[in-house]
């Protein structure tokens, strides 16, 4: 059963979508239906849904602002809107689909199935990555498995300088100069690399502490990595970051 939340400022629109999901699509349960981004954030935190149907243009805060509240987007997003012009931006965030109102039932069914498949695939991949990673935790030649479009790529942890997150994607910056993109969010790698002296210095950056060349003080400050790239340290994480450095 896929759990879903609907965020839309129009009551009729929420009622219609909920009824479509309930009566025309199998195995979807709407666990909350709310009228604003603020209420949506609370509902997601409370219910941890698999899928969020999100309107874009709502009074006070638009749908895209929802993502600012989460370090990790651990749910699939289907935008539901009458506005065509946001499609590109939507897909750059985490959108699995973009449905134009009035909602076409066939496209809605496809969107739900896509979300279901992605949730199941993510679950399998995550389990496999953890399994492979554990197998390789002999501390002498540690590697990490990264999902790519055609399979899994194994990278030595020592070869990673830092990782940068952008919505549902993570970019690996390697000593070899390569940049690798993977469709997993940064939080997943933060968990995976927690035992290997990596630190989340910013909402969008996870650095390998052994690959730092310099830390420049400031409100949060920034670090210069071994490849010369600068990475901001957020004000909120600065204290924990300095503690982590003192334990190296």
């Amino acid at each position: 059963m896929l759990t879903a939340i609907i965020i839309d400022d129009e009551l009729k629109s929420r009622q219609g979508l909920e009824t479509m999901l309930h009566s025309m699509i199998e195995n979807v349960s709407v666990v909350a239906s709310v009228d604003s981004v603020n209420n949506g954030i609370k509902a997601i935190q409370k219910n941890k849904p698999d899928l969020v149907f999100l309107d874009i243009e709502m009074p006070k805060r638009d749908g895209f602002e929802l993502f600012d509240a989460f370090d990790v987007i651990d749910f699939e997003v289907v935008f539901t809107t009458a506005h065509e012009q946001y499609a590109t931006k939507a897909f750059r965030t985490t959108a699995i689909d973009y449905l134009l109102k009035p909602i076409d039932i066939n496209l809605l069914k496809e969107a739900v199935e896509r979300a279901r498949e992605k949730r199941e695939k993510d679950k399998v991949n995550k389990n496999f990555e953890v399994f492979v990673s554990n197998l390789k935790k002999d501390k002498s030649n540690q590697q990490i498995a990264i999902s790519s479009s055609d399979g899994l790529l194994f990278i030595k942890i020592d070869n990673i300088i830092y990782l940068r997150g952008d919505g549902a994607y993570t970019y690996f910056f390697l000593k070899s100069g390569e940049r690798i993109t993977t469709s997993k969010n940064l939080k997943e790698y933060e968990d995976l690399l927690s035992d290997y002296d990596f630190f989340r210095v910013h909402k969008s950056s996870l650095i390998h502490l052994h690959e730092m060349k310099k830390y420049v003080r400031g409100e949060g400050g920034y670090v210069v990595m071994s490849n010369g790239d600068s990475v901001d340290v957020s004000k909120r994480r600065k204290e924990n970051f300095l503690n982590a450095l003192s334990k190296l």
Binding site: E10, G16, T19, E57, A82, P102, I103
Partner: peptide, 15 residues
């Protein structure tokens, strides 16, 4: 967007 939203609303009434 007004008219598209109205049609969506009518669709909801039917559903």
């Amino acid at each position: 967007h007004f008219l598209l939203n109205v049609i969506n609303s009518i669709q909801s009434d039917i559903i």
